[in-house]
Amino acid sequence: MHVATFRQQLAKEPAIAAEGSGVQKTALAVKLQAENLNFYYGKFQALHGISLSIVTYKITAFIGPSGCGKSTFLRTMNRMNETVRNTRVEGKLLLDGQDLREMDVTFVRRRVGMVFQKSNPFPKTIFDNVAYGLRVNGVRSRPVIEAAVERSLRRAALWDEVKDKLRKPASALSGGQQQRLCIARALAVEPEVLLLDEPCSALDPIATLKIEELLFQIKDITTIVIVTHNMQQAARLADYTGFFLMGKLIEFDDTRKIFQNPSKKETEDYVTGRFG
């Protein structure tokens, strides 16, 4: 698929976009919901009263200058923030209406997958990388694992490139391939939500394009939330976009509204490049 195709698709987006009425008013299924979420690193408050809803099978993007809290917010959605010492969350985070923080943490992370800024393949073979999540979650059957690995690699548009070298170490792949491998690894456990933290920031434009294409391919099986510092990327990919500034969610709306007709002055300054 090509960028132009993305644009066409954006153009024939469903009714909500045309109405321009924002997320909250639609009747779409809400997958993840934050209510008045505060986040602290020690005494420093990194997030201030974030409230928003992530819609099922849509791509949601978060933009904003670095240090604005977009990644922090992303990491609270699968409780990865808990791996950092001395952090604290206040408020509610609901996954399918259930509070995330009352669930078992490994269970949350299996349901809400994550892809990181820097690709982080394990020092194992390509196959074992993709199979890791399944094994961790108790899948033992060899045929099931093999099928899942192939399916995930196909979804991540990597199968054709690696099908002959599944037993090779993952470190032999190129940067873009490694990142797609990490996406395949995350997809293998069939997450309901896939969080991506600036997945393309270390990649060249061609590799970036491949990742964007594959995200488009998988949005009908999983809900995608992506943090990016690249506004064009958000505009190309996302159905909804949120703009963060200084730990606050300034505006959250339909992507086209954010980029063409934002309701807040700060958003306009940022998307038109007038901001720092």
Binding site: M80, T83, R109, Y132, G133, V189
Partner: peptide, 20 residues
């Protein structure tokens, strides 16, 4: 990033340490 990668897949801390 190795630890994060494993934990983001739902591995427990112990599992992360001993398998990754």
């Amino acid at each position: 990033s190795m630890r994060e990668g494993a934990m983001a897949l739902g591995a427990t801390r112990a599992r992360t340490i001993f398998t990754v």
